[in-house]
């Protein structure tokens, strides 16, 4: 018996992603904790990619090679899904913008190396939503069985359609018309995002670099309870590293664009966390660490060597925060009450 696994947090994972050579000095218990945490954070493929040409202990080499096979499969099926959406939406006139993992994969960014890619996320203009929905339904996607409340909630307040799943391939597509719920306080300029999106080879579009970072930050900090935060922050690190090298005034343009989308706070916070955890090179005048930064960091690292969630109270606080950000107080109370009643009913069944 041992309690060793409980004494780790995901710093070990962060360290090994940032400096893969550190992993070469790990003992057996460290390796087991590292791999468990990487799997729990959906970062095993990314870690595998970082470690793939290193001299690893034999058992680790097997695990890494399994993870690489898996992420190849993820990559391949994500691109296949992108192509299926392209064919389904061929007659749609407006731009279809790929988002998150699928965008990184289709554009061949570093962030896609080993990345876990789940659903296909796309964005179209709000005016095009109805046509896109109809084309997808015609091409074999169907509604995931939701109840009326969830359906109405998506339609009225969310930044995306209720999720659609393909009847044969069992893969989900999320169709967005903006990047944050309508009820959230920041009001990003979705029209500008679509207008400035860049075409890629296959007929789809991706966001321009500054917008891609704004979306990544919005997804990470302004929407949700930081579940999967280390993975999303790794995206942020890769994007910043890729884009900031190109042109000297990148940081200035990023700040302006973030302000235009009312996302400066989220972008600034994500950039600071990316610098603190993954060592991203950022301008000195962007580094203003505060008490809340420490809380965010603690939340991002809240997992032990058994892959279990730790700091339950802090996690809960961030869960509440995520709802707080998403909607005004009265609406929040009504929403949580409905959800609670439904959960209660489901338990009794």
């Amino acid at each position: 018996m041992s309690n060793a696994g409980l004494h780790y947090d995901t710093w070990l994972l962060v360290d090994c992603l940032r400096e893969p050579d550190r992993a070469l000095r790990l003992n057996d218990a460290d390796w087991v904790a590292l791999i468990t945490m990487a799997r729990a954070e959906s970062l095993i493929g990314t870690l595998a990619y970082r470690l793939k040409n290193k001299k690893l202990p034999q058992p680790v080499a097997h695990i890494i090679s399994d993870a690489l096979i898996d992420s190849d499969y993820q990559y391949r099926s994500a691109l296949w899904e992108v192509d299926c959406a392209r064919r389904a939406l061929e007659s749609y006139d407006g731009p279809v913008v790929l988002m998150k993992g699928s965008a990184y994969a289709a554009a061949g960014f570093n962030a896609s190396h080993g990345r876990f890619i789940g659903d296909l996320d796309i964005m179209v203009s709000e005016g095009g939503l109805k046509e896109v929905e109809e084309l997808l339904l015609k091409a074999g996607w169907e509604w995931v069985k939701e109840d009326e409340y969830d359906e109405a909630y998506y339609r009225d307040y969310m930044h995306e359609l209720p999720p659609l799943i393909h009847s044969e391939r069992d893969r989900m597509i999320d169709v967005h018309h903006t990047i944050l719920p309508k009820t959230a306080e920041p009001n990003p300029n979705a029209r500008a995002m679509i207008a400035d999106a860049l075409p890629i080879d296959d007929g789809h579009y991706i966001f321009m670099p500054e917008d891609m970072i704004c979306h990544c930050a919005a997804h990470l900090m302004a929407d949700g309870d930081l579940a999967g935060g280390l993975r999303n922050l790794w995206d942020m690190h890769c994007l910043l590293s890729d884009f900031s090298g190109a042109a000297g005034d990148f940081w200035m343009r990023l700040k302006q664009r973030a302000q235009q989308h009312e996302l400066w706070e989220a972008v600034h916070l994500s950039v600071r966390q990316s610098n603190a955890l993954y060592g991203t090179t950022i301008p000195v005048d962007w580094m203003q660490w505060g008490i809340s930064d420490t809380l965010f960091q603690k939340r991002l690292l809240a997992r032990n060597g058994w892959g279990q969630k730790t700091y339950k109270l802090l996690r809960f606080a961030f869960y509440i925060r995520s709802h707080w950000l998403r909607m005004p107080p009265l609406m929040l109370i009504k929403h949580l009450l409905t959800k609670w009643r439904k959960g209660h009913k489901a338990h009794q069944l």
């Binding site: 057996d28 390796w31 087991v32 058992p59 680790v60 097997h62 695990i63 058994w306």
Partner: peptide
Amino acid sequence: KLTDYTVT
């Protein structure tokens, strides 16, 4: 000591 999978 170094295992492939963890179950809790």
